[in-house]
Each structure stands twice: as structure tokens, then as C-alpha cells.
């Protein structure tokens, strides 16, 4: 049985600090997995290791059987891993439509000759994907708006739309609920569940437990760079190691 994503003994050292220390984990096709941990646990680093942003110090990461160590970020993206950013990184001086089209054109590359002589088929495929992604997040009515002019909550959905336009096999959301109020978080949770319901494999990296516990099938817990727990939410909630990490029981 091969997993969609396999992380084997992954480590990442920054100077003297082991940000990720010998983590082994996996994600199966069709799962909705949460990755949680207190501040500084190494969540974002592990995430960056998976998306190819940061090279591994040791270990391997395999996606659909292909080792992705040392691959360029854009290559990893084209293999089917798509992500959003914790500190929103939309393209501010581009329209909403153009923002999302970048995700589509990234995975369906259009060359200069296509642009010059108009390969209509390719362009149609890109625009189709772009509209579909905009529709999925409900931003079609602001397609011509400049991304910088969108309110914060909308920009989150814009990032998700851009990731969806890549038609990924695996979507990683980095702290999608950060900065959202309770209502917005509930809407987001419903939206993520809907995406998952359509068969997309999703990993949710979150600082806050509630969202993860309410929608994820399985939860990975990191603390100080190590994986300390891995299981369904109800088990994680009672895991003494997790409670200790979050509440600091010992001392």
C-alpha cells in the first residue's frame, strides 16, 4: 500500500536548531489531515519541506511514489502539490482573475509563441480552469477587481482559488483561519469540508485546535520539531503528550 505523501525521517536544521526532528508521517489519497502544534513546533517548516520551499537536512519525502527531495518548488507544484500561505501572498497589483489564472498557467504552461500566435485551445483550458476555481470560492463577481482592494477574508479565498486552479492532487492550507472571526472560520470549515467531499486530499496546518478537531479525519501533532501524536481527533484530544505540549503540564 503506497501513500500519496510519505515523509520518512525528515529533519531540517537551521544553524543549531532542529526545526523538524526525525518526523515520519504519511497522507493517503482522499484524506483530510490536520497538522497542529504549539508556536514554534515546526509546522511551517515541515510544510515547507513538503512543498519544496526548503531543502531537507536528512530523510526523504515522496509524493505519489516520486522522491521530491531537491526538486525545484515549481516542479513540486507541477507534480500536484499546491499550497496557500500563512501570511497571505496574493499578487496585489493584478486582478482577481489574473491572480487565479497564474495557478492555471503554472500547471498548463503557455509559452511566448502560444501567446504571440494564439494557441486558442490552451488559452481556453486556462480560462476554463480559472473560472471554475473562481466559482468554487464564489469570487466570480469580483473577477476584474484588483487583488489589493479585496478585504482580508476574501483574499484568503482568492489564495485558495489560485491553488485550486492548479487542479492539485494534494492541497496544503497554511493557517487558513488565522485572522478570521468565528463566523468566517465556520464558513471556512464548511468550505474545506466541501472541497474534501469532492475528493481532494487536503492537509490543514493550524495553530488553533478547534477548526482542525472539528473537520479533520486524522490529526498529526508536532511539538519542538518532533511528531508526538498521530490519530483521530477524539484520541488526540485525550492524548497526555498533546495536553502537555499545549498546556505545559510539566515544570
Amino acid at each position: 500500500m503506497t501513500h500519496l505523501l510519505e515523509i520518512e525521517n525528515a529533519s531540517r536544521r537551521f544553524g543549531g536548531v532542529l526545526a523538524v526532528n526525525d518526523v515520519t508521517a504519511h497522507v493517503d489519497e482522499g484524506e483530510l489531515v490536520g497538522l497542529i502544534g504549539p508556536n514554534g513546533a515546526g509546522k511551517t517548516t515541515l510544510f515547507n519541506l513538503i512543498s519544496g520551499f526548503t531543502p531537507l537536512s536528512a530523510g526523504t519525502v515522496r509524493f505519489a511514489g516520486t522522491p521530491i527531495n531537491g526538486l525545484r518548488t515549481n516542479r513540486v507544484a507541477r507534480l500536484g502539490i499546491s499550497r496557500t500561505f500563512q501570511n497571505l501572498r496574493v499578487f496585489p497589483n493584478m486582478s482577481v482573475f489574473d491572480n487565479v489564472s497564474v495557478g492555471a498557467v503554472g500547471t498548463l504552461p503557455q509559452g511566448p509563441l502560444d501567446a504571440l500566435f494564439g494557441a486558442a485551445k490552451r488559452a481556453d483550458a486556462i480560462s476554463e480552469r480559472t473560472w471554475a476555481a473562481l466559482e468554487a470560492v464564489g469570487l466570480t463577481h469580483v473577477a476584474d477587481e484588483l487583488a489589493a482592494n479585496l478585504p482580508y477574508g476574501r483574499r484568503k479565498y482568492l489564495e485558495i482559488a489560485r491553488a485550486l486552479a492548479m487542479q492539485p492532487r494534494f492541497l496544503i492550507l497554511d493557517e487558513p483561519a488565522a485572522g478570521l472571526n468565528d463566523t468566517e472560520t465556520r464558513e471556512l470549515a464548511a468550505f474545506i469540508k466541501r472541497l474534501h467531499g469532492q475528493g481532494l486530499t487536503i492537509m490543514l496546518v493550524e495553530h488553533d485546535m478547534n477548526l482542525v478537531m472539528s473537520i479533520c479525519q486524522r490529526v498529526l501533532v508536532l511539538a519542538t520539531g518532533r511528531k508526538i501524536a498521530d490519530g483521530p481527533p477524539e484520541v488526540i484530544r485525550q492524548d497526555p503528550a498533546v495536553l502537555e505540549a499545549y498546556l505545559g503540564v510539566d515544570a
Binding site: S51, F53, R72, T73, N74, A77, R78, S82, R83, F85, R89, F91, P92, N93, M94, D98, N99, S101, V102, G103, A104, V105, G106, T107, P109, Q110, G111, P112, D114, A115, L116, G118, A123, I126, S127, R162, A163, M166
Partner: peptide, 26 residues
């Protein structure tokens, strides 16, 4: 034609945030 196309959009994404463009497969 080069700058007002999806190709042009990919180039613009590099101007806006090249790391992020990279993560989008560009």
C-alpha cells in the same frame, strides 16, 4: 500580445512575488 496573455500573467506573477509564483508551478 506577449504581455496581455496568460503568458504575460505568469511574468507578472514573478514581478509580484517570485517565490509564490514558483509555488504555483511557474
Amino acid at each position: 500580445r506577449l504581455s496581455h496573455s496568460y503568458y504575460g500573467n505568469a511574468l507578472r506573477s514573478i514581478r509580484e512575488d517570485d517565490q509564490c509564483a514558483d509555488a504555483m508551478g511557474v
